[in-house]
Amino acid sequence: MTAQHEEDELAQGDLVLVTGATGFVGAAVAKAARAAGYRVRVTARQSSDRRNLAGLEEQAVYLDLAEPDSFPAALKDCRYLLHVAADYRLWVPNEAAMRKVNIDGSIALLRAAQRAGVERSIYTSSVAALGLTDDGSPADETTLILPAHHVGAYKRSKYDAEQEVRRLAQEQDIVIVNPSTPIGPGDVKPTPTGQMVLDAARGKMPAFVDTGLNVAHVDDVAAGHLLALTQGRSGEGYILGGEDLMLRDLLALVAELSGRAAPKLRLPLAPLMPLAWAMERIAERTGKTPLMTPDILRMAKKKMFFSTHKARTELGYAPRPARQAVEDALIWFRKEGRLT
């Protein structure tokens, strides 16, 4: 198969392995692949929350990125791999454990896919692995990457993993996708962003910091994975983003759709640093995820704005407005009884 794929070259009914389908983005990818006519096999660990596998339970197989012996059986007879699984946490007590999964596990899985005869793999990276502009303008796939951009264990692991995947793509057919900040239905955990939306909808976010992020509907991110499978070029990366918003504007949007007043208080970052440091020290002793850490505050100094031009022009990616993502997330949270 050549690096440039046309959609009609993919026979409907081909078996696709989707890792991470118990998670927010992975579940959306698995459902989108099934809706597109692929036969879908999903992976789960024994300890995974399986609520997102509704309708896919019979296709679930065991796979743990920390256990390479679990790879061959999961990959058997698969034509394509959509590798979405990752350890996504903004704070971890043990960075080495995260790196073992996000870097070592991902590379081992992609190599195992090649040995198993998988024709093309999609590797889900993150905009966290990309560079940022100094002036806050949207970054793209070519923006210069500096070490200062990769604050925190997760960002470092995703950057290092993507560099390894790019080298591996010289030997096998791999397309990289870089989702931004997904919002929408199916956020069962929820993700840190989903929790923020929930808190804002409950009136528990009275203040904000001066930062910005790129918001994408989770179903658009899922659709982008399938577009990358059919249209992407091997070794290339594609930002699967949506709309750039200041945090205050996102919270105001959530408040509007929830019938609440928008937060008015802007918190300066510098005075929060001692509190964040103390919270992290407490977390190290208790093992409980802190509300705030110095790394989170350092990340907030940069606006995480991104351009989707490459994905739009090469893949046909067409993200919807952030309002739709927030609306659909709130509808789902209400249906699940998280909002009353």
Rank of each mutant, 00 (worst) to 15 (best):
A3M: 14
Q4P: 15
H5K: 12
H5T: 12
D8Y: 08
E9M: 12
A11Q: 15
Q12R: 09
D14H: 09
T19A: 05
G20I: 10
F24C: 05
G26T: 06
V29A: 00
V29K: 08
A32M: 06
A35Q: 15
V42L: 05
S47D: 07
S48I: 07
S48W: 02
A54Q: 14
G55T: 07
E57S: 11
E58L: 05
D64Q: 07
P68N: 04
D69M: 10
C78N: 04
Y80T: 01
L81R: 06
V84H: 05
Y88C: 09
V92D: 10
P93W: 12
N94Q: 12
A96K: 13
K100F: 11
S106M: 07
L109N: 11
R111S: 11
V118W: 09
R120C: 14
Y123W: 14
A129K: 04
P138A: 09
A139R: 05
A139C: 08
A139I: 06
D140H: 07
T142F: 14
L144Q: 14
L146V: 12
V151N: 06
V151D: 03
Y154A: 09
Y159H: 15
A161T: 02
A161D: 09
E162T: 14
Q163K: 14
R166A: 01
E171M: 08
D173V: 03
V175K: 08
P179I: 08
P182D: 01
P185E: 12
D187M: 07
P192L: 10
T193G: 02
T193D: 01
Q195C: 01
V197G: 00
R202V: 02
D210G: 06
T211C: 15
L213K: 06
N214G: 02
N214Y: 13
V215T: 04
H217W: 12
V218T: 03
V221H: 08
G224I: 00
H225I: 04
H225V: 02
S234Y: 00
E236A: 12
G242I: 00
D249T: 00
L250P: 05
L251A: 07
A252P: 04
V254I: 13
V254W: 07
L257I: 09
L257T: 02
A261D: 15
A262Q: 05
A262L: 13
P263R: 06
R266F: 08
L272H: 12
W277H: 13
I282M: 09
E284I: 02
T289V: 14
D295Y: 05
L297N: 10
L297Q: 10
R298S: 06
M299C: 08
K301D: 01
K301G: 07
K303S: 11
M304P: 00
A311C: 06
R312D: 03
E314N: 08
A322K: 00
Q324P: 02
Q324F: 13
V326N: 14
D328F: 13
A329M: 11
L330T: 05
